[in-house]
Design a protein around this nucleic acid. Sequence first.
DNA 1: TAATCTATTGCAACATAGTTGCAAAACCTA
DNA 2: TAGGTTTTGCAACTATGTTGCAATAGATTA
Lengths: 141, 141
Amino acid sequence: MEQKIIDLLKRSSLSVTDSRKKILESFFQENSALAHADIELHVGDEFDRVTIYRTLQTFVDKGIIHTIPTPDNAVLYALCKDSCSAGHHHDNHVHFICDNCNKTYCLEQVVVPSIAMPQNFVASQIDMVVSGICNFCNASS
Amino acid sequence: MEQKIIDLLKRSSLSVTDSRKKILESFFQENSALAHADIELHVGDEFDRVTIYRTLQTFVDKGIIHTIPTPDNAVLYALCKDSCSAGHHHDNHVHFICDNCNKTYCLEQVVVPSIAMPQNFVASQIDMVVSGICNFCNASS
DNA sequence: TAATCTATTGCAACATAGTTGCAAAACCTA
DNA sequence: TAGGTTTTGCAACTATGTTGCAATAGATTA
């Protein structure tokens, strides 16, 4: 784990610092998307609020994580797959928000469908967010 | 215009007040989605910030407007079509954000496609936000 | 592994967005 | 137009996010 995280940071040409390691660890431990507040909880008061904001921004810039738009306008972050690179995200998958447990997942295997646009509209990016009940909540009820 | 707005308010069993009229007017004048800040600009300092927040919330509750999730997590509001009613929105259309003029439109004629969900995931709502260049910006370049 | 240079962090202060309680004002009904 | 009810404005507060700058930690090279 520790080594995997260090490798990822080096591969992204980022210096390996305690806060970056701890924050990345949060993402590897949870397999769902995290809000800034979730991360603050996870790392405790070991690091400054500002550091977390800046670290998340750095990770987004480097293509390590991507943001997810949600209907209630909370900012969520999730790990990118390997195909993402700095400044060029490939997260064309659907995001799923569970109304029950409130977790957000990347449905890597569900690709956003292409749609027909009206005359003279040109699409460059499509975000698709589905809400409902996730597999874990369905299984446990 | 004035009468159309008053009718809409009465139909929604809301009392007809100056702020509600002025805020609805903003939506009818602009045919794109509006952020809280846009509305504040439009109505000037005639009404309190808090009143605008509360009025928008009331309109959402009554099915007069709906919110639009955006990739940069700004809250946008747009008029609902007649098929919307209190507590029950039918805005299953695609939303479009222009990267050039930065306006957001409801593409009423483009319906969100249904997608196949993975085992045990059940979808109840789908939001689809497309960004790119709108017809107006394409035509004028 | 010590010296140095650069990148990162923490602090403080600030900016913006949104919420709540309560008294005053506006609206609706009869 | 008098009454009760709803809406508004004000003030204060919370949450969220940003910026500049000095101190610190990480990386590099000898």
